[in-house]
Design a protein around this nucleic acid. Structure first.
Length: 154
DNA sequence: GCCAACGTTGGC
DNA sequence: GCCAACGTTGGC
């Protein structure tokens, strides 16, 4: 059982979009970074919990909890000529990109903002708050997970 | 294999 | 909108 943080731009796909998805489940497609791909393909396991993070928006932060409901499988949008994520270099016989399915567990009672996360010494090793980090999928260790959850209720 | 140029991410 | 920090590309 591992913990993760997954970034999404709410303009593209928000927590509400997840809530309104059939069975509150979505394919996490479109990841086109090899480090993130490796986590999707090799590390994420069914039942792992995920902080759902809104990036590139007015108030960046963690807004909900989701879980992995299907482990890594080839990202079909790479083969779809009509998709913005189409990648002609991904061969269906040897797929380059992978995705998982995630399902909503619950929204948080409030947004735990990036600014707030940066204040806590206990989170100084959290990859999210490290300078220059642009990965859209990041590991969270158990103590960090518990600490962040503890911030939800003020 | 090096590395300059370019593209992207994402906070601010 | 700016720009720092990365990742990728492609010439050599």
């Amino acid at each position: 059982m591992q913990y993760w943080l997954m970034k999404t731009e709410p303009n593209t796909f928000s927590l509400n979009d997840l809530k309104n998805s059939p069975r509150k489940t979505t394919e996490w497609d479109g990841v086109r970074n090899y480090q993130a791909r490796n986590m999707l393909r090799d590390k994420m396991q069914k039942g792992d919990l995920v902080f759902f993070y809104h990036s590139n928006c007015k108030e960046p932060g963690i807004v909900g909890i989701a879980k992995i409901t299907k482990e890594g499988y080839p990202d079909s949008t790479a083969f779809d000529f009509t998709s913005p994520y189409h990648d002609p270099k991904s061969d269906p016989a040897n797929p380059r990109w992978f995705m998982v399915n995630i399902s909503l567990v619950r929204p948080l009672q409030r947004t735990i903002t990036l600014a707030e996360l940066k204040l806590h010494l206990a989170l100084k090793e959290l990859p999210l708050v490290r300078k220059g980090n642009r990965l859209s999928i990041l590991p969270v260790n158990e103590s960090q997970w518990q600490f962040i959850l503890g911030l939800e209720i003020i």
